[in-house]
Amino acid sequence: MSATDTPASLPAPAAPDSARRSPWGEVLHSLSRSGTFLTGLFILLFWVVCALFGQNFVPYDPLASDIINALTPPAADHWFGTDQLGRDVFSRVIVGSRDILTVAPLATILATIAGTALGLVIGYFRGIVDDIVSRVLEAFMAIPVVIIALLAIVALGTSKITVIVVIGLSFAPIIARTVRSAVLAERELDYVAAAKLRHEGALHTMFVEILPNVIPPILVETTVRLGYAIFAVATLSFMGFGIQPPSPDWGLSISSNYGMIGGGFWWTVLFDALAIASLVIGVNLVADGVHGAFND
């Protein structure tokens, strides 16, 4: 691992093929050539743009109801039709990316920070701390996220913050486990021994010496978790425990419209379902690309 001398936050610019690249330049270079990554990034960016600016270019107000034109099938003036309150489905799908793309990344960031700190500590100290904490984490991971979330949200009430915290904390053990195994390998290396000989404190050794060297597995795990976070947020919203009305969120829209599916009003749910599908697959393609770039 020679990444110690490269500031992690400052990836080197991609150099021409012949030049020698820093490790991060290498990764960027292989990412820029990975079809999987670029496809995923394109999909992800599309939805990010929709989330940020969608409000400005959609043809209708996603929240404005128009009962007279309720449940009209897709046509020229309503591309994706209208829902039971006459709201334009196209506008709702575009703007519906906003909440999920706020909640899921924040949950992932929380999971990454908590998981990394925990993983560093148990990986660095090992011994009894590791034994106890690892067992607790394993027990925690054995329960499906949906169930944890359900219980926590019943106890704490529904809000975006609760969803972020619940998903963040239930993903943290998984990240902690990844970080732990990376740290276990790192702590045997000479630079850690050198730091100890210099009488650096445990905190310094963990966060200043080891952390920069375990960034790659953390990055990979974080992108993978983002996919699962979107999965979880969408599912919770669908169950009514996540994002709340009147948000045009996709999962929420599906849950309020799928009851009428038997009546043939397919357009009220299909586009939301496809939107979730595309976002989840996009993020997973990105994760796959990142994984490939760090492991080649």
Partner: peptide, 10 residues
């Protein structure tokens, strides 16, 4: 990677 309710709906 798709949520069950999404594949379910489709």
């Amino acid at each position: 990677v798709l949520p069950e309710f999404v594949t379910g709906i489709i």
